Simulated assay, not measured.
Amino acid sequence: MSIIKSPPSPTHILGGARFTSLATPSRGSNETAIWQVEIEPGTPATPHSLSREEVFVVLDGKASVRIGGKAGIAAKGDAIVVPSDTEFELTNEGDDMLRLMCCFPVGGQARVGDKAFTPPWAE
């Protein structure tokens, strides 16, 4: 059994988004990376795709989601499933902080334009 203690503060900050790595290879997981992301209201989305499926669970707030050109709203308790190789974007739909839990297979990569990389909060 492994218990990985939560870091005392976000581990990565990118614009109006704060990422907190919870279970990642650098923190002790082998197959699944899990992190929390907090997105400030008004933070613009970065359209991107992923080499593997990613699942988000909305913890607080409302997310405006566009996956493969289809739009929707996800609220507290909803799960968002992003298929691999499908462009998506996610923004904060409300006036309060949007908090999500994210699950992504270790080794998966994000793609923005022609650039593929492992998100640092998933390493």
Rank of each mutant, 00 (worst) to 15 (best):
E87K: 01
G15A: 00
T46E: 13
H12S: 04
I13N: 03
Q109I: 08
R52V: 13
G94F: 14
E38S: 12
K76M: 12
C103I: 11
L50A: 11
S21N: 02
V57A: 04
K5S: 12
I4G: 02
E123S: 08
K62C: 07
G107F: 07
R99K: 12
I80L: 07
I3L: 14
T32H: 02
A17Q: 08
T32K: 04
I80C: 06
D114S: 10
D95T: 12
G28R: 00
I67R: 06
E89M: 00
I67V: 15
A45I: 13
V65F: 02
T32C: 11
F88P: 03
D60K: 15
P47S: 00
G77A: 01
N30H: 04
S21F: 02
V65Q: 01
G16W: 12
V55W: 04
K5R: 14
S29N: 05
K70N: 12
P10F: 15
T86E: 14
C102S: 11
S9L: 11
L50D: 13
E87N: 09
A45C: 05
S26C: 02
A23H: 03
A45D: 08
A79R: 04
F117R: 08
E53R: 04
M1K: 12
I80N: 06
G69L: 08
P83W: 09
S26T: 14
V106N: 10
G28M: 02
E53F: 01
G113R: 06
G108K: 10
E93H: 11
